[in-house]
Structure formats: structure tokens, C-alpha cells
Simulated assay, not measured.
Amino acid sequence: MIWKSLMGILCMGGLSATNAAILMINDASQLYDVRIEIGCVQQECSGEAEITLSQKGRPQVFQKFSTTQLSFYLPKHDQSDVDHLLKYDNQSGVIFGDFNFDGNEDIAIQDGNYGAYGGVTYDIYVMNRKRQKFIYSAELSRLTQESLGMFRLDPDTKRIITLNKSGCCNHTRSEYEVVPQKGLLLSREYSEVLMLSGEEVEIIDRKLVNGHWQEQIWHYPIKQYHEIEKQ
């Protein structure tokens, strides 16, 4: 599993009205226990929040974070697992994962809905082994601001994948490589565009090969394209 959503949640304090609830999350991370202080009304928690990490088995605070806009719903029943393949309308408040493929667990903390089409945006913090703390990554955070919610990870190709769209009929998937000491490199863009006629779909696949962009374009009748998607 590349990352896990909020789960194993223990709430202290009544939630029938707005309360400063304390949420303890013990199995969202392999290395850390998470404490969240946030206001909740029944099953909905939102607004300013403080997130505190402690290393498993140690009572001391490892690092604290704050956000002006965290928002999520508490599970109505005990959940042993939560869908971690994020959808546009199903994004967690706190996410752990190795976002830069360096072998260290990183953390993403929701900071509002400022992405494309009101998508969820995140502050991304990556682990700095020398400093032994999480450091804010403007580059990774910006990806969530410019696309539809939290990015996805492909552990096989070690690429970060973002989804975006323009209107109803132009959908784009972008892939980024993490270049050590340099940052993110856009290495592929795959677009599906419904033509103005409404009868044809244009597929554009752009790949960066040896520093040069190579582009392939296909056109499919809309009925044939739907059949291809089903395969």
C-alpha cells in the first residue's frame, strides 16, 4: 500500500455540537502516531487544526504542524481499512507516503480547497534525514494546487501522477519524475479531447525521451473509443 487514509480513529469528547475534539490515529503511518485537534460537529470535522506526530513507542512530540483548513468525516463504524486510491471527491485530511521515492515516509496535510475545480489542496512535507524533521516542499504542494486533488504514485516507474481537465471534454494525465538535487521533471502528458463535432476523440501522448519530446496522436470515432476504454 503506497499510502493510507485516516483510519483507526479514536475520538475523545462529545461531538453532538461543535467541540474541540482530539483525534488519535495510530495506524495511518508505519512510523508515527498522529494527534489532531480540530472542531467537529457530529461526524464532520473542519477548520483550523493542529497535527502532532510522535514516533511509535515514544511519548515525546516529534513534530507539530498547523493548517487553517482541514476537513474530513469520521467513519460511522470501526474501519480496519480505508480506500487509499484517492478520487476527486474522496480525499483524506492527512496522508502518509513516500512522495519523492527516497525511501522515507513523508506527510501531506490538507490546507483547503484551492485546486482546480475546487479540488482539495495539500501542504506536502518531506523527511530530511540529516535534519531529522519534515521540510515543506513547495514543488510537491504546488502539484495539488494545479491539478484535481492529491497526486498519485506509481512505485514501479517511480513517477508522480496528476489528473486535470478543462471543461467537460479535455482530460489530461501528467507524469513527473523526481530528479535528485534538481526537483520535478515533467516526463509525460496524456490527453483525451472530445472534438467539437462530438463524434471523435483525439488522443495525444507526449513523452520526454533523452531530453526531447516525442508526440503521438490518434483519432477514434466516439463509439470505438468507448469500446477501447472498456477493454
Results as ranks from 00 to 15, higher is better:
Ile2Arg: 07
Lys4Cys: 12
Ser5Asn: 14
Met7Asp: 12
Gly8Ala: 00
Ile9Val: 15
Cys11Pro: 01
Gly14Pro: 09
Thr18Asp: 03
Thr18Ala: 05
Ile22Thr: 08
Asn26Arg: 07
Asn26Ile: 01
Asn26Tyr: 00
Leu31Pro: 05
Arg35Ile: 01
Ile36Tyr: 00
Cys45Thr: 00
Lys56Val: 15
Pro59Arg: 09
Gln60Trp: 05
Val61Glu: 09
Phe62Ser: 08
Thr67Phe: 09
Thr68Tyr: 11
Gln69Asn: 13
Gln69His: 13
Phe72Ala: 02
Pro75Leu: 00
Lys76Met: 07
Asp78Gln: 03
Gln79His: 04
Gln79Thr: 15
Asp83Gln: 05
Asp83Met: 05
His84Trp: 11
Leu85Pro: 04
Leu86Val: 03
Leu86Ser: 06
Tyr88Lys: 07
Ser92Leu: 14
Gly93Asn: 10
Val94Pro: 00
Gly97Ile: 05
Asn100Asp: 15
Asn100Tyr: 10
Asn100Arg: 12
Asp106Lys: 01
Ala108Lys: 02
Ile109Phe: 02
Gln110Cys: 07
Asp111Lys: 14
Gly112Trp: 14
Asn113Trp: 12
Asn113His: 11
Tyr114Phe: 13
Val120His: 04
Ile124Glu: 07
Tyr125Lys: 07
Arg129Gly: 07
Gln132Lys: 01
Lys133Trp: 01
Phe134Trp: 02
Leu140Gly: 02
Ser141Glu: 14
Arg142Pro: 00
Gln145Asp: 06
Gln145Ile: 04
Gln145Met: 08
Ser147His: 14
Ser147Ile: 09
Gly149Asn: 12
Leu153Cys: 09
Arg159Met: 09
Thr162His: 02
Lys165Trp: 15
Ser166Thr: 12
Ser166Tyr: 13
Cys168Ile: 07
Asn170Asp: 15
His171Val: 09
Glu175Ala: 10
Lys182Thr: 12
Gly183Trp: 06
Gly183Ala: 05
Leu184Pro: 03
Arg188His: 15
Arg188Ile: 06
Glu189Met: 13
Ser191Glu: 15
Glu192Ala: 07
Val193Tyr: 15
Gly198Lys: 12
Glu199Met: 09
Val201Phe: 14
Val201Ser: 08
Glu202Gly: 08
Glu202Asp: 11
Glu202Tyr: 08
Asp205Phe: 05
Lys207Met: 15
Val209Phe: 07
His212Phe: 05
Gln214Ser: 07
Tyr220Asp: 02
Pro221Arg: 15
